[in-house]
């Protein structure tokens, strides 16, 4: 498929799912009235539901999905390893730890940007550790082992902080931070995450040329004038921005950065630069679809997003490990 056509199809898919996301909900508003309320503000209660409850939910699903798809594609391109995914290797988990620490210490209430900044700090530490432990010379096994260690540590510390909280509800929210949910988020959260996602997305987008060059090998890339040190810094900063901001709002959602690039890679002809844009759109579509599904399957139970993405992603992950092993990498 030609690349512009692919992007067009994916954009249409995202637009369709975005509209569907706006029309699904327990209030049972008919589509025509829902749109009238959203656009023209007809009906007090309907407008409140559409603009303050459903719109932020749909926007956040698209933004966070795009972030995860993009970050996954960028990390896989840089490490030349299809298993690198923000959720699996502990970046989302560490971002969640940062967010939980900011919330429970009260720093998040002290100034507005503290929550996404703390989550980003968590993500920076994790990306840094992963690149240090399993950098470009390390194989798949090293990457996965480092990821397991970082995930386990972040998960345990998150659970500890929540268990120590004086708030009786906090401990029950361990599941939210590990599995993610977009239920009852608001426009405040959209504005909180958006600037970081724009900056991080722009940073990751600049990696395209370098990632293409890297497919020829590191020496060839260096002769083409690609600075690997600079790329690494951009990757760390960009991934931390998008994953940190997203996780601070929705908790850690896994597997999107794994599944989406995997599906799209053959379609874009294995060009990492093209995979970046395609994966961002694909990630948005996948998370929108997952968030619609959790509302249709068990509408009143706040089913966690990570449950659905893992049900799709974990079998694929096993398949990828199997294939990697067969190829003797």
């Amino acid at each position: 498929m030609r690349f512009p056509l692919l992007l067009g199809v994916l954009a249409l898919l995202v637009a369709g799912l975005f509209a569907a996301s706006l029309l699904v909900g327990p209030a049972g508003i008919v589509p025509a009235r829902a749109l009238a309320a959203l656009i023209r503000g007809e009906g007090v209660a309907e407008t409140l539901v559409m603009r303050e409850i459903r719109l932020p939910r749909a926007l956040l699903a698209a933004m966070i999905g795009a972030s995860l798809g993009l970050a996954g594609a960028a990390m896989q391109g840089y490490l030349r390893n299809p298993l690198a995914e923000p959720g699996l290797i502990g970046i989302s988990g560490s971002a969640a730890l940062g967010a939980v620490l900011a919330l429970q210490t009260g720093v998040a209430a002290a100034f507005v940007l503290a929550l996404p900044l703390a989550a980003m700090a968590g993500a920076v530490v994790a990306v840094g550790l992963i690149l240090l432990l399993a950098g470009r010379s390390g194989g798949s096994i090293t990457l996965i082992l480092a990821g397991i260690a970082v995930s386990a540590m972040a998960g345990a510390l998150t659970a500890l902080v929540l268990n120590l909280s004086p708030n009786p509800f906090a401990a029950a929210e361990i599941v939210f931070w590990m599995m993610g949910s977009l239920a009852d988020r608001s426009m405040t959260h959209v504005w909180l995450a958006l600037p970081f996602m724009v900056v991080g997305g722009a940073l990751l987008a600049t990696l395209g040329r370098g990632l293409d060059a890297l497919t020829l090998g590191e020496d060839a890339a260096a002769t083409l004038g690609v600075s690997l040190t600079r790329m690494r810094l951009v990757l760390i900063g960009g991934t931390a921005c998008v994953v940190g901001a997203g996780t601070a709002i929705s908790g850690a959602i896994g597997f999107i950065g794994l599944v989406v690039p995997h599906i799209l890679r053959p379609v874009v002809g294995a060009r990492p630069s093209r995979l970046l844009a395609a994966s961002a759109l694909g990630g948005a579509a996948m998370l929108l679809a997952a968030d619609i599904a959790v509302r249709l399957i068990l509408p009143e139970r706040d089913l966690k997003l990570g449950v659905l993405t893992a049900l799709v992603g974990a079998p694929l992950f096993l398949h990828l490990i199997y294939r990697t092993r067969r190829e003797g990498l």
């Binding site: 303050e52 708030n167 929210e173 009852d184």
Partner: peptide, 16 residues
């Protein structure tokens, strides 16, 4: 309200 933060109680402050 209880001291400390929880996402459970955040719904009480939702703009809607």
């Amino acid at each position: 309200r209880y001291p400390g933060e929880s996402r459970a109680e955040a719904v009480l402050d939702h703009p809607a």
